[in-house]
Amino acid sequence: MKGDALDPKALIAEAYRIEGISLEECRSIFLDWALSLPEGTDEQAALAALLARHGVSGHPMTRVMSDGRSPAAPRRRGGRAARRN
């Protein structure tokens, strides 16, 4: 299957076609998708467009892509690393 500029390897489209796909499998596919984007691609814009195109409510790939759109909260560093300047 041939992809397009948003989904060069058609990974996201294929994930929506797989029946019974798990959240972990979707995360793996998402990582492969992110690594296959051409340099200079606006990932957030691509995710928004792919969600508009494929976003099926309740599908694990929709959840993974939605999570990818929200920035990760900074994590508190504990232990010795937190006390060192």
Rank of each mutant, 00 (worst) to 15 (best):
P60S: 02
H54E: 10
S70P: 03
R75I: 12
D67L: 13
Q44Y: 09
A72K: 14
R75A: 14
I29N: 01
A73N: 02
C26T: 00
L6I: 04
S22N: 01
H54S: 04
E39D: 10
A45P: 06
M61F: 01
K2S: 15
L35P: 03
D32H: 09
L37R: 07
L47M: 12
R27Q: 12
A15R: 04
D42H: 05
A81T: 11
L50S: 05
R76D: 15
A15S: 10
M1N: 14
G79F: 02
P74Q: 06
A73F: 08
S70R: 15
D32R: 14
E24W: 00
S36N: 12
P38T: 03
R75F: 10
L6D: 15
A72D: 10
S70N: 13
R76N: 13
D7C: 12
T62W: 00
R17E: 15
R17P: 06
Y16Q: 11
R84Q: 10
R76W: 09
Y16F: 10
E43W: 08
K2G: 08
A81M: 06
E25D: 03
P38D: 13
E43H: 13
E25L: 00
D42F: 01
L35M: 09
A15T: 00
P60R: 01
R53I: 01
D32V: 06
D7N: 07
E14I: 05
Q44M: 13
I12E: 11
E39Y: 09
W33L: 03
L37M: 09
P38L: 12
I12V: 14
Y16H: 06
S28H: 05
M61S: 06
A72P: 07
A49E: 02
A72R: 14
A81D: 15
E19F: 04
E24K: 02
W33H: 06
S28M: 02
R27I: 01
P38Q: 12
E19C: 02
P74D: 09
L51H: 01
A81E: 15
E19G: 11
E14W: 09
L31W: 06
R17V: 03
G68P: 14
E24P: 03
R84L: 14
N85Y: 06
R80P: 06
A82C: 11
R84V: 12
E14A: 15
D67F: 08
R27V: 03
R53Q: 08
N85K: 14
E24C: 00
A13K: 15
E43T: 13
A45S: 05
L11I: 00
E19P: 10
G58R: 05
R63S: 10
H54K: 08
H54T: 02
P74F: 12
K2C: 08
L23R: 07
S66P: 09
G3L: 14
I18S: 02
L47D: 05
V64T: 05
T41S: 15
D67T: 12
P71M: 13
G55R: 08
R53W: 02
P8S: 05
